[in-house]
Design a protein around this nucleic acid. Sequence first.
DNA 1: TTTTATGCAAAACTTTTGCAGCGGG
DNA 2: CCCGCTGCAAAAGTTTTGCATAAAA
Lengths: 148, 148
Amino acid sequence: MRQPHEVFLDYLRRRNLNMTPQRAVIVETFLATEGHFSCEELCTMVRKADAAIGQATVYRTLKLLVDSGLAEPLLAGEGPVLYEHSYGHGHHDHLVCLNCNGKIEIVDQVIEDQQEQLAREHGFTLTRHSMILYGLCPRCQNSDHRKD
Amino acid sequence: MRQPHEVFLDYLRRRNLNMTPQRAVIVETFLATEGHFSCEELCTMVRKADAAIGQATVYRTLKLLVDSGLAEPLLAGEGPVLYEHSYGHGHHDHLVCLNCNGKIEIVDQVIEDQQEQLAREHGFTLTRHSMILYGLCPRCQNSDHRKD
DNA sequence: TTTTATGCAAAACTTTTGCAGCGGG
DNA sequence: CCCGCTGCAAAAGTTTTGCATAAAA
């Protein structure tokens, strides 16, 4: 399997864009960060490596990462858009706890197949999808630490 | 089945809030509007009925509508959050065309059941979910009017 | 009279854009 | 030399908040 770094370089080449020191730092930081984070948060982490990198550059580069297929936005609603890297993770959906905000990755082939089937019935060609299940995780069901 | 109007009044009572002329106009306009719309758009429509109603009041009331279960936010990503009324429509998910932005409502019992099953496997108690399938609708697959 | 609602304008928050200057091919 | 890249700061788009006033309980 091709390394994410390679994937990004190929993408830049295809788009006639250049690798730059800033982009290198941002991509490296992005790949080294697990979990879900906003662009603002990525920005903060990038600046630990190089404080001179502008916020706009991080936004612009994250957009390239999404376009290249390495990053995926998680549209959960409130606040800023969260991202995660899709490289080496495979596709997955999310189970989100409404209380502690914890996120579990889930995959279900039955659902994936059914989604394709549904799209076909309506003549759609599917590109991607987003499925988020909201509820209470086991811990929060039994704890008194409810937000409400 | 209880009328949406009643549902809202009950909600207000439960929260010790009052029905007001402004809220009445906003709820009425909201219920009379089909499809998906942003709060800004609702605001414009509300003002056709009463130009003196402030934008903040519309935002505040729409929040109450969501809380009361009459309105549902559709978290599709770009731009403002879109809403629809959930009263009398039953639960459904969406098939969204990436080109023309058209939205089709879909329901699939197999998927719904599987979601419950998945949640159970992880010990989650599900409250709600959001599933959006993105792709190209039949019209846009065959047309030259692509955005890109 | 005490609480709740409202409208306005300002603020907040996230993301995008304009622009002048820099730098690599 | 040209074109892309960058940082900065300003702008844009959407939603929330503070506050003084008005209305309701």
